[in-house]
Amino acid sequence: MTKILVIAEHNEEALNPSTAKCVACAASIDGAEIDIAVLAASAASVAAEAAQISSVGRVVTVERAENDAGLAAILAPQIAAMASDYSHLFGPSTAFGKDLMPRVAALLGVNQISDIMSIEGSHRFKRPIYAGNAIVTVEAPAESIVVATVRTASYQAAESGNAAPIESATVDVEVPTHTRFVELQTGKSDRPDLQAAAKVVSGGRALGSEENFELIFKLADKLGAAIGSSRAAVDAGYVPPETQVGQTGQIIAPDLYIAIGISGAIQHITGIKDAGTIVAINKDEEAPIFEVSDIGLVGDLFSIVPELTEALG
């Protein structure tokens, strides 16, 4: 019997789209029964959203004040205590899930599978290694619980339209006080979230300065796109780290990805492999980004980008 508990990612107000992607992955296991766990200080609005995701049988809420910041050290013992009812525990391969799920796995005495990109059976999965240069099939032991993160870029969010029952649970475990949330600084903007955006405009080292990134912002705003960047652009201080796309940044799969002044190192490419359409604008016709782009344009970004922004009227 395959019973999967998906750990919801949220900010106490809204459910992160990564959760519906984990559900989509879980639902591709034959005959899986899927529950969602919402651990929160106050779970109602997040749980209501989770209950709408199709294929979900039940939403289980665990409310306690300490859960408000979603800290791994506090959530993990509660999830481990809920695990005995399940054959699988899934979380997203976002910063939240990557922080949390290995801690849960270790408490349960099992290894963890990172970045499931395809389900080959209830205990067989495919995942990328070496920045996506190789794909491995891994097999988890049938007799122990499977704890895994789901590579969210490999899945479309499960549809909504469900009305799963919401049940509140009490998990009687002590949580530590050795880890305390201080603050979260977000580069608050009206632009869409990089993970969830259908379109992403991304800039690289060739932009040359923080001021010149304004060109990227203007084009993105015209398209209603999120902002991405290469590691080189972040290291140079042009844009904040949360915009970085690639092996050690965010792995994304928008419908449209426009790479501007990005040469296309393998570590960057691995973050965009699942994009629908990749557009590359670069002055170097030999740039590796053109090997993976669907539409390429060789030329000076400082004239092309304003012209493109203007022409999109």
Binding site: T94, A95, F96, E183, L184, Q185, T186, L194, P240, E242
Partner: peptide, 9 residues
């Protein structure tokens, strides 16, 4: 470094 920005603990 988290997906939405910088978290301090």
């Amino acid at each position: 470094e988290v997906d939405s920005g910088l978290e301090t603990i």
